[in-house]
């Protein structure tokens, strides 16, 4: 059942894990909002997968997403303090760089992350998997143990919220939200 005993499959699983690391890390960042926590979450994910193995017939990358998701949810429960308000205070933990030095991409990432952080956790998860990681609904349903229909409606709700938060390129700073949806 578990890909651990057999050396050959273990080697393949290890390579598949290595291959998946950058994307799992990105997934972790899209959940945690800062690289420090994302790297910790990634490390915990790898440790957990190494510890418990990967079931056969399962895509290793998607399994890692699943473990990562579970650990993130556990973490959220453990630190409910980290209620991610729209201010998204954890972003302040990012290394402070002078405004000029922050690449456009980094500013954009922060702004989008603030919008992501405003979503309910289950919407953030499905958006991260489908919009960022490019999973199909079926794959996302498998990772999240959620019916397809629920995936579909969470995604739509997530995107609808983002439309009102991310109007136009970098508009959030200049424009008040038109609706108070919180």
């Amino acid at each position: 059942m578990i890909k651990q005993g057999n050396k050959e499959t273990a080697g393949t699983a290890r390579e598949a894990m290595l291959e998946a690391l950058p994307r799992v890390r990105r997934f972790a960042l899209s959940l945690t909002g800062n690289r420090h926590d994302a790297d910790d979450l990634l490390q915990n994910t790898v440790e957990r997968v190494l510890d418990r193995g990967v079931p056969e017939q399962v895509d290793v990358g998607r399994w890692m997403f699943k473990v990562c998701k579970n650990l993130w949810i556990d973490e959220l429960r453990a630190h409910s303090v980290r209620a991610r308000a729209s201010a998204s205070p954890e972003l302040a933990e990012e290394p402070v760089v002078s405004g000029e030095a922050v690449a456009f991409g980094e500013l954009e990432l922060r702004e989008v992350d603030r919008a992501m952080a405003s979503l309910p956790d289950e919407q953030r998860l499905v958006l991260a998997l489908v919009a960022v990681e490019g999973l199909t609904y079926r794959e996302a349903a498998e990772v999240l143990d959620t019916p397809l229909g629920t995936i579909m409606s969470r995604l739509a709700r997530a995107r609808a919220s983002l439309v009102s938060r991310l109007q136009g390129p970098r508009a959030a700073a200049a424009k008040q939200p038109e609706t108070s949806d919180e």
Binding site: L21, P22, R23, R25, R26, L29, S30, R35, L42, G105, E108, L109, E111, V112, D113, A115, M116, L127, A131, V132, R159, L162, V163, R165, L166, P169
Partner: peptide, 17 residues
């Protein structure tokens, strides 16, 4: 909105682990 989300994280997968 979807494109902005995808675009914002696109480069992250290229960062060193």
């Amino acid at each position: 909105a979807n494109d902005r989300v995808r675009g914002a994280y696109a480069g992250v997968a290229a960062e060193p682990v």
